[in-house]
Design a protein around this nucleic acid. Structure first.
Length: 314
DNA sequence: AAGACGAAAGTGGTTGA
DNA sequence: TCAACAACTTTCGTCTT
């Protein structure tokens, strides 16, 4: 699949709008293409969902299709459902013999019992359709959805959903899956797409983190850099500089407890001045969703702690 | 005129008693 | 459950480019 995608990109002769470079790396985790020479994020959510082979005749297609429906955690029965027909006929339409009919009857009974009569199963059914809706609304890649689904299943088996709305736990799972895969989605972005309020989701998030055995990395300002810098059309060296600044800041522990948006914004502001690729505080504040004042405070702090000297001649 | 600056007062969330 | 607290926001007057 990877080769195919690359080929398609090459065929279309896409060149970077910022630096003219023609090579890109694919960031499958974030679903983005990134210019290798300047770091510009070219396009988001470019997923090739087609098969990786080509077939010209029906026989070829049948021969190459190796699988049925994929097994996935996002469908309540993992996409592995079977159906036993209610008619007592075999495949060619003949009536079954009495012994076979009895066997089929027993199988059908257990099949139905195992499938329907579990409240957890019904819960999952509702939850997974909600999760599907929410994550496609947020444009979340497939593998992150799988993580979210796994998280929800774990929460469900630990009885964390009882007494809480399914929706809030689903939202929490999706949010945490994003954190794990380091794709920046804030809690309020998730919250706006659901009917549950922010507070409840926040509670569910903390509950899941404390009870489900998955370690969730803290949101880092670094994760926001690609998104923000492509919004601001910054040059590659500026982006690199900003990443460097954040790395240094994290080493000196000045980022703890601060809004990552503020840190990322401030780093980009400083990098812009240093690299003569300047953006105003207001522009940065708009895309990083903090106020100018916060950008100011953070950038003053970063300059002080990291000892960066700023020339005002730019 | 736009951008940067910083003071002051207010807000939502965490922590510790 | 409540108060203290840090981080962040809003607002606004002033200075700089």
């Amino acid at each position: 699949m990877t080769n195919m995608v690359r080929e398609r990109i090459a065929n279309k002769r896409i060149v970077c709008v910022s630096c003219g470079g023609a090579s890109f790396t694919e960031d499958h985790v974030r679903g983005e293409n990134i210019c290798t020479s300047c770091g510009l994020v070219v396009s988001e959510r470019t997923t090739d969902r087609g098969p990786e082979w080509r077939a010209f005749t029906t026989e070829e297609r049948n021969a190459r299709a190796r699988t049925g429906a994929p097994m996935t955690l996002t469908i309540a029965d993992r996409g592995l459902s079977t159906v036993i027909d209610w008619r007592n006929k075999d495949a060619s339409g003949r009536a079954l013999t009495s012994t076979t009919r009895a066997a089929i009857y027993r199988m059908r009974k257990w099949h139905i019992r195992s499938r329907l009569h579990s409240s957890q199963h019904r819960n999952l059914g509702i939850a997974m359709s909600e999760m599907e809706r929410l994550s496609s609304q947020l444009g979340i890649p497939r593998d992150v959805r799988e993580t979210a689904a796994l998280m929800y299943r774990k929460a469900l088996t630990k009885n964390l959903v009882r007494g809480r709305s399914i929706e809030s736990v689903v939202a929490a799972s999706v949010y945490l899956a994003c954190r794990i895969h380091r794709i920046p989605r804030r809690l309020d972005e998730v919250a706006t797409e659901t009917n549950v309020d922010r507070k409840q989701i926040g509670h569910a998030v903390r509950l899941v983190v404390s009870r489900v055995n998955i370690d969730v990395p803290l949101a880092s300002a670094k994760d926001l850099i690609p998104r923000l810098s492509s919004d601001l059309l910054l040059e590659g060296r500026t982006v690199k500089k900003a990443t460097e600044i954040i790395k240094n800041a994290e080493e000196k522990f000045v980022t703890i407890g601060k809004d990552p948006g503020g840190i990322a914004g401030a780093a980009l502001y400083i990098a812009g001045i240093v690299e003569k690729d300047r953006r105003t505080q207001r522009e940065i504040a708009n895309v990083s969703r903090v106020t100018e004042v916060t950008i100011r405070n953070r950038y003053k702090e970063l300059v002080r702690v990291l000892g960066i000297s700023i020339d005002i001649d730019s």
